[in-house]
């Protein structure tokens, strides 16, 4: 069998699967743009002319940005601690990987049990008499962001950890033995090397937060929607597929507009680092 034929056959199964995905992507964008055979921006005009939709878009970006920020804030120290841990690291890894692999439905539901009116926190607070009536801990931005950070934090930790594990501890020690203070060594040695992992983590968390449905619905309710929950409603309750397609395209564009530049930056940084070039 000639080599090119053999390669084509080997690529056939995965290529077919990806072709199906691309076919759907093209049809999605098509169905939101073409009405009765002609190019028509009706659905997009309908979205951007409504102030509640624009507010929903803003809310989505704000919640995704805050989720990413808090995930980085909590994820970097955790990854650093685990990477430099001298004991049995596998137990720490298990505490990160296992929750990550449990379904997001179960984890979000867990937060409903903790934050709900009859949940753990309110139970303790009313029992001890700290508050008389249950606090409203969910069905607001706080609940949604807490849930999203919990669900997405492992992605951030794993992305940063996989980079930090490759950086030898001796590199920091060398920097410090040459008189660098810990904060200085961290900023000039560790942080630049960890940057590709940080960028991968930011990308993943931001993407998943903008496109999340389950966690925002369970912890935010149907009131203040995000792009994902709005798409869900258009499909499940109103059966308005062209509008859902237009909203999904808006979601794609806003997500990729943030993610692609970060990916390019990450590639550029990784290439420079592996060339041994100075930053």
């Amino acid at each position: 069998m000639p080599r090119s034929l053999r390669i084509s056959l080997l690529l056939l199964p995965s290529g077919l699967l990806m072709a199906v995905f691309v076919y759907g992507l093209i049809r999605l964008i098509g169905s939101s743009l073409i009405v009765d055979g002609t190019l028509d921006f009706t659905y997009y005009e309908a979205i951007f002319s409504r102030s509640d939709y624009v507010a929903m878009l803003g809310r989505t970006l704000r919640i995704a940005a805050m989720t990413t920020f808090f995930s980085l804030l909590l994820g970097f120290p955790t990854a650093y601690y685990v990477a430099r841990y001298r004991g049995n690291r596998n137990i720490l890894l298990l505490l990160i990987i296992f929750p990550w692999l449990v379904s997001i439905v179960v984890r979000s539901y867990g937060w409903v049990v903790i934050l709900g009116p009859r949940g753990l926190i309110n139970g303790v607070l009313t029992w001890t008499g700290v508050v008389e009536r249950p606090l409203k801990l969910m069905y607001n931005d706080f609940g949604v962001i807490l849930g999203l950070v919990h669900v997405l934090l492992p992605f951030m930790i794993i992305a940063i950890l996989s980079v930090l594990m490759q950086i030898p501890r001796t590199l920091e020690e060398a920097s410090m033995s040459l008189g660098g203070r810990p904060a200085h060594s961290f900023r000039t040695v560790l942080l630049p090397l960890a940057m590709p992992g940080v960028l991968t983590g930011i990308t993943l968390v931001y993407l998943m937060a903008t496109g999340a449905i389950v966690t925002p619905l369970l912890l935010g309710g149907l009131g203040d929607t995000m792009l994902g929950t709005e798409i869900f409603q258009e499909v499940m309750h109103f059966f308005d597929y062209p509008k859902a397609a237009a909203l999904a395209t808006v979601l794609l564009v806003t997500a990729l507009a943030v993610v692609l530049p970060i990916q390019l930056l990450e590639r550029w940084l990784s290439a420079r680092l592996s060339d041994g070039g100075a930053l």
């Binding site: 903008t210 496109g211 499909v235 999904a248 395209t249 794609l252």
Partner: peptide
């Protein structure tokens, strides 16, 4: 991996 899940759902 780099597509938001809600968008993949509609796709």
């Amino acid at each position: 991996l780099i597509f938001p899940h809600a968008a993949i759902g509609v796709i």
